[in-house]
Amino acid sequence: MSAVPEWFAGKARWSGFEIAFWCALAGAYFLPNIDIALLSQIFIWGLFAMSLDLLLGYRGIASLGHAAFFGAGAYCAGFLGKYGWGEPVSGLLISMLPAAALGWLTGKLVQRVSGVALLMVTLGLNLILFDFVQRSTALTGGDDGLQGIAVDPLLGLFRFDIFGRTAYWYSLGALFALFVFLRAFVHSPFGLALTGSRENARRMIMLGSPVEGDISIVFAVSAAAAAAAGALLTQTTQFVSPATLSFQRSADVLVMLIIGGAGRLYGGLIGALIFLVMKDWLAALSPVYWYFWIGLLLVLVVSFFRKGVLPSLETGMRGLIARLGKARGGGPPA
């Protein structure tokens, strides 16, 4: 444990685990027989889950409609590609803007509601957008999805190939860049204030904090990150359909985050990894029944690891280290 003057610096510093984790993600590409398409999916879902973590894990606001922002980014990238803006990086950045505005407005709306009402409002907004996109066939192609999306080579050099090699590095790069951004965001004083509002909003008001206004800001940032994930999906598959906006997707991303563990950014990534690898493996075993095991996993996680897999592992590790330290008779008491 770091000493008092080093406390914040210690939290903000990159640990060896973190560096190893990112090296492993990059290195996985070179493993034989690795399914890089699956990994790209994990990066995109991981980013999506991470965006929800900012809202739920750090600020404590549950959303049952986060796919609205994912879908907004996905369709925005789709329209850009379809109508001549094929450059992927700028397209990705532009796609984050409408969703950020949408997130900001959502934050304004939900400032004063909580509990079931909050879940219903976020769900309702998601369904409105879904219904609108699905029915506006002239604009969006309806259930058939948006066709004819062209994406230029990445940096003018790397085509998006059918093996998904460019898609792999592009998704990983975008995920890492946004992770670095979000990591800095949550380690800033504003991030501390978000945690404070999660813990005790009334006291934050009595510290002079604009608690309600901050909800709009965190919603906007979270929505922008979710939109980036959606835009990545569109750009790497050159296709977008209303499924990007579905309630199913909102539920899935929540499930991933809860499985991985909310409140540490990595939880979303780990959750996406567990969920998608399990799905891939189980669906190969029995294409019809794999949802049973996802359901069971969800029930077990909320029953036995209330905080999710990652935090439970951390606690377990810390306990183990403390016991080992004691067994050796050395080390300070934890």
């Binding site: 610096a9 965001f185 501390l192 204030a193 002079g208």
Partner: peptide, 23 residues
């Protein structure tokens, strides 16, 4: 420590969105 630093950041208007670490 975190609680009091949070209060001080709020007092001095330092807790606005930024990427500068608390450290």
């Amino acid at each position: 420590l975190e609680s009091v630093v949070l209060a001080l950041c709020e007092r001095d208007g330092r807790a606005r969105p930024a990427l500068r670490a608390v450290a």
